[in-house]
Lab assay of single mutants.
Amino acid sequence: LDITFHVDGKNIHVHGASEEVVRIIEELIKNNARAEEIKETLERLLR
């Protein structure tokens, strides 16, 4: 699975993920999660 995301100002662009995963990533970023935390969360979800 190949998910890429980047933050452009306040806009979060996520590619290669389901809508549910996109929402989770957006929440994590809004809550100022570190990249490592986001990665760990995604790995748990995608197991």
Rank of each mutant, 00 (worst) to 15 (best):
H6V: 15
K10N: 11
K39I: 15
H6I: 14
E40N: 11
L45I: 08
D8M: 04
H15S: 09
I38Q: 01
F5L: 10
E37D: 11
I38P: 00
R47K: 11
L46S: 04
A33T: 09
H13W: 06
R23E: 06
K30W: 13
G9H: 03
N31P: 01
L45E: 02
E43W: 15
I3M: 10
A35M: 14
R23C: 03
V21S: 04
D2C: 13
E37Q: 12
T41P: 00
S18V: 04
A17E: 01
G16I: 04
K30L: 12
R34T: 12
E37F: 13
V22R: 07
A35G: 09
V21R: 00
K30D: 05
D2R: 10
I25N: 00
E27V: 09
V14L: 07
K30N: 07
E19R: 12
L28S: 02
V22H: 04
R47I: 13
I38H: 01
R44I: 07
E19W: 15
V14K: 00
R47Q: 13
K30E: 06
E26K: 14
V7W: 05
D2M: 12
L1D: 06
F5W: 09
L1R: 12
E20K: 08
K39A: 11
E20W: 15
R44P: 01
V22Q: 05
G16F: 07
N31Q: 11
E27W: 15
I38K: 00
R44L: 10
K39W: 15
H6W: 15
N11H: 13
A17V: 14
K10T: 14
I29D: 00
H15L: 09
E37W: 11
V21C: 03
R47L: 14
V21E: 03
K30A: 11
T41G: 03
R47C: 05
K30P: 00
R23A: 10
V7A: 03
E27A: 13
G16T: 04
I29Q: 02
T41L: 09
R34L: 06
K10G: 09
N31G: 09
N31F: 11
N32P: 03
E27F: 15
R34M: 07
G9I: 00
I29M: 06
A35W: 15
R23W: 13
N32M: 10
R44T: 08
H13R: 07
L28T: 01
R23S: 08
E43N: 14
S18L: 04
R34S: 13
G9S: 02
E40D: 11
I25M: 05
A17F: 03
G9A: 02
A35E: 07
L46T: 05
V14Q: 01
G16Y: 05
L42D: 00
N32D: 10
N11D: 15
I24F: 09
E27Q: 12
K30Q: 10
I38W: 05
I12H: 02
V21H: 06
N11E: 15
V7K: 02
I12F: 15
E36D: 13
G16A: 06
L45V: 06
E43V: 14
I29T: 02
G16N: 12
H13S: 07
R47M: 15
E37C: 06
R34W: 05
H15C: 06
E19M: 14
V14P: 00
N11F: 14
H6T: 13
V21K: 01
E36Y: 13
K39Y: 15
E19L: 13
N11R: 09
E27P: 00
E19K: 12
H6Y: 13
E40C: 07
A33Y: 10
A33V: 10
I38R: 00
V14I: 09
H6N: 13
F5C: 03
H15F: 14
G9W: 03
E26V: 13
R44V: 08
R44W: 14
H6C: 10
K39R: 14
H6R: 09
N11P: 13
L45C: 01
E36N: 08
L46D: 02
H6L: 13
I3N: 02
A35L: 14
N31S: 11
R23M: 09
E20Q: 10
G16H: 07
A17S: 03
D8G: 08
L1G: 07
D2Q: 10
I38T: 02
A33M: 08
S18Q: 05
E37L: 13
V22A: 05
L45T: 02
I29C: 03
G16Q: 07
H6E: 13
I24S: 04
T41A: 13
I3G: 01
L1V: 14
E37V: 12
H15W: 15
N11Y: 15
H15D: 03
K10V: 15
E26L: 15
I12V: 07
T4S: 11
F5K: 03
I25S: 00
E20C: 04
K10M: 15
E37K: 10
L28I: 03
E19H: 11
R34I: 05
E26S: 13
V21A: 07
I3A: 05
E19I: 13
I29F: 05
E26A: 09
R34H: 11
A17C: 04
A35Q: 05
D2K: 11
K39T: 14
E36T: 09
E43R: 15
K39L: 15
E26N: 14
E19A: 13
I38M: 03
L42A: 04
I38D: 02
S18R: 05
L42Y: 03
R47P: 11
N32E: 07
N11C: 08
E19F: 14
R23V: 05
H13Y: 12
N32A: 07
G16R: 06
H15N: 06
N31R: 12
R44E: 05
E26W: 15
L1A: 08
V7F: 08
E37S: 08
D2V: 12
I3R: 07
L1P: 06
N31H: 11
I12T: 01
R44N: 06
V14D: 00
L45G: 00
R44D: 04
D2A: 09
E20V: 08
R34Y: 05
H13A: 05
I25R: 00
H15M: 10
V14A: 08
E19G: 08
D8S: 05
D2N: 11
I25V: 09
D8I: 01
L1S: 09
I25L: 05
K10Q: 15
I38V: 12
I24E: 06
G16V: 04
G16D: 08
E36F: 13
E19N: 10
L42V: 08
E36R: 08
V7L: 06
R23N: 07
K30M: 11
T4G: 05
I29Y: 03
R44C: 04
D2G: 09
D2Y: 11
L42S: 00
K10P: 02
T41Q: 09
N31I: 07
L42P: 00
R47W: 12
N11W: 15
T4F: 11
